[in-house]
Write a protein that binds this DNA or RNA. Structure first.
Lengths: 211, 211
DNA sequence: CTGAACATGTAAAAGGTTACATGATTTT
DNA sequence: AAAATCATGTAACCTTTTACATGTTCAG
């Protein structure tokens, strides 16, 4: 049970703790902010998983010797926040093992797209509504991502800071690229619906999407 | 319990049946092929849901009077296939109601991205591997999508065929657009990792991604 | 005749989300 | 003093996935 059996949520916890120690609340916040749109972490899983990880000896309470230096606006916890967790040696090893294994295939559940697929009979207005809603969602996602500047506010005193911030930048770029592509799709999609509404569309004779 | 309470899978079933009648097996195949990459439908859910939908009077066995016309390579069921289901009037109404309601927010679980985010310490090779794997996945997804021609092989005799095939085209375009964007990201990402590996990267002083 | 594809189901387990419940601390 | 934020947890529910189990039909 030492290394391979953890739940996806548990691995995420280890990952975030590998950047620096935090408590449960901070953990969920970090996850929410930085990977929320492609990796949900809910309280319901978080605390039980923390307990399990601690029992397995993969994480432990941080003695937090790092009260050093400037208690700047970012670096220091104000007076007393709850006990942060940190990775143990074994936790670190487990994390590295996980990172080396090939990732699970990505899973997407996009009800909006499904509705769109079936909306031929529902009419162009319904389609436009789905597209508009999607645009709004993507726009929001993109704006949230743009507020992220990879790595800022890393606690100064605490070590363990990754040598580079390349990874964070790559992930950020991924988000932005896909958001932009999806916005572009929204434009074309709206156009196509509009065109279709007008000339009543001659559609090619034989085709196939579902069989 | 008539209309609003169905599971996501059940709505998908209704959606596909609204295009034309099919049996469970065909249903799963259609779902797999056309929306598999953004909407999973597994056998474990499928048959129980079919039963429930039938009990609720939203679907019923198709009397299949449509043995008419050419028994071409595509149109006709060869000799005897299993009983197909079709939408009832109430099923159709329920479906339309669902289509009008705003969709659930899309949910993504992308372990590859999470691993990438934590792979700074794992090194450039690990990163490149993650990117390469992603490229392969996306490429496959794109190729599968390209084989789809919206609407072909719709059973000729059966009516209920949507007036347009616009919806299928939009969904297809969505898939292709996003695949291409992701492939472009793979290119840049690989480049960035390579650059980083070389000059040892001067990275800007203060930043922030997770806090 | 043999293997592939067709076809339908069940049971168990895993996992996640939501809602509920509670209390401390900090800010207004 | 009240409200917001911090903080930790539990329990029920809901779904999906996976594995198992079985039988038929069709093509080579």
């Amino acid at each position: 049970m030492t290394s391979a059996d953890l739940t996806p949520t548990a691995w995420t916890i280890l990952g975030f703790l590998s950047l620096h120690p935090r408590n449960g609340y901070q953990l969920r916040q970090a996850a929410q902010r930085s990977v929320g749109h492609f990796w949900g972490v809910s309280y319901g899983q978080l605390y039980p998983q923390l307990k399990l990880l601690a029992e397995d000896g993969l994480i432990e309470p941080d003695p937090e010797p790092a009260a050093a230096g400037a208690a700047g606006p970012a670096g220091g916890r104000s007076s007393r926040s709850a006990a942060p967790w940190r990775l143990t040696q074994r936790g670190n090893e487990a994390l590295r093992g996980w990172l080396r294994r090939p990732p699970e295939p990505r899973q997407l559940r996009d009800e909006g797209l499904v509705k769109l697929l079936f909306s031929d009979e529902a009419g162009p207005t319904a389609m436009l509504e789905l597209i508009a809603r999607r645009r709004a969602d993507v726009l929001l996602r993109k704006e949230l991502a743009e507020q992220i500047v990879p790595g800022a506010h890393w606690p100064k005193a605490t070590d363990r800071r990754p040598q580079s911030l390349l990874a964070a930048r790559l992930v950020l770029a991924h988000t932005l690229t896909l958001c932009e592509a999806e916005l572009a799709w929204c434009d074309t999609a709206e156009q196509l619906v509009a065109e279709h509404r007008g000339p009543l569309a001659d559609h090619p004779p034989e085709l196939r999407h579902d069989a």
